[in-house]
Design a protein around this nucleic acid. Structure first.
Lengths: 186, 186
DNA sequence: TAAAATACGGAGGGCCCCGCCACTTAGCAA
DNA sequence: TTGCTAAGTGGCGGGGCCCTCCGTATTTTA
């Protein structure tokens, strides 16, 4: 496909904007029909541009994920590897807690997995890898911990705190608990 | 209501049994209509016995929660308070990972919260409190950690690993990571 | 400007949740 | 045992959502 038709591109952009609002308001399970209605297009057009709910979510959050990746790159050269890693983890957590629906996209293999190599989770993991590696070299984290583990943990924390009065604060608290260890062997 | 009618009690029991299978097969979002169909009753009857999906889930899992509470009581007198707490946490995690839909009931305030005081999460928390208290007295965990925090963490871990090839193993791994600490200050 | 390719949107089927209402049945009393 | 009463039941209709198909409209290209 050399190029898209102009109206298609317009609808695509419009749908993304509307979807973002709708997901912010109603979470990752927002009604696709409602999005179509608000955008003033037929429901079939939504599916044409985004074959699955997951595809729509990934498109909506691509930019935010990219921001987090960039953050990781900025921290790559920090003097304190441990502090850098922890700052990044807190940033991911805060973003996830603040942005409804975002973690649904990190929850790999969730309903409708397609194993796409450029999945959001994979790109985040790739961006965070250097931070973790340096922290591990410093002995600040165990060597057998993977970025995917940390992201899964964060995903879980955000999912479980989604309905609290203050999700961001609660998520941050729990992340701190997991970082310090519930009961580390002395 | 002094007593229920016999057929009502029968339907109640039958629905519980069918719902348990259906939830095990399709998760917490299992179709209530399908449950009604399989049980051979009208869909209104399901709703009459269990006003909300959450009510049904709680009824289905009440027994399992009770088992976990009993486990906590058994461990209450153990010599090693830290080991006792950790064993219990692992047990809760394993149960949650193995039993589809169970954590939906622990996720307090999830859609359809009613703030019932005898909610499953509350009872679990109450049962685990002594274990945590003793562990804290031994200095094995920080004094400001609440049972609810630990249960929320476990809930999150189970939710986030639900779709992995081997949920129970992955959940256990992540719990161990959180217990030891991602990057405890030395 | 006309033909061809591309994109659109509404209709229809399937499934689900929910509330309503006439009917059946269990349990009590005579 | 036989009625009587109220608790309990189940089917029906309304409203949504997801998904697919297909005739139509719009854009691009020749």
């Amino acid at each position: 496909m050399p190029t898209q038709r102009a109206d298609a591109r317009r609808n695509h952009a419009r749908l993304l904007a509307v979807a973002e609002e709708e997901i912010a308001a109603h979470g990752a399970a927002a009604s696709l029909e409602q999005i179509a209605r608000t955008a003033g297009v037929g429901s079939a057009t939504v599916r044409r541009h985004f074959p699955s709910r997951r595809a729509l979510l990934e498109a909506v959050f691509r930019g935010r994920i990219e921001t987090l990746c960039a953050h990781a790159r900025e921290l790559a050269g920090a003097a304190d590897a441990r502090a850098a890693l922890l700052e990044w983890l807190r940033a991911v957590t805060a973003y996830g807690a603040r942005t409804r629906g975002l973690v649904a996209v990190l929850d790999r293999c969730a309903p409708g997995d397609d194993g796409a190599p450029d999945a959001c989770a994979a790109r985040l993991a790739q961006a965070g890898a250097p931070l973790l590696r340096r922290a591990a070299q410093d002995g600040a984290v165990a060597p057998d911990v993977a970025v995917a583990d940390l992201l899964t943990l964060i995903t879980g924390i955000v999912l479980a705190t989604e309905h609290h009065p203050d999700p961001a604060a609660e998520a941050d608290r729990l992340l701190a608990l997991a970082v310090a260890g519930i009961s580390p062997r002395r």
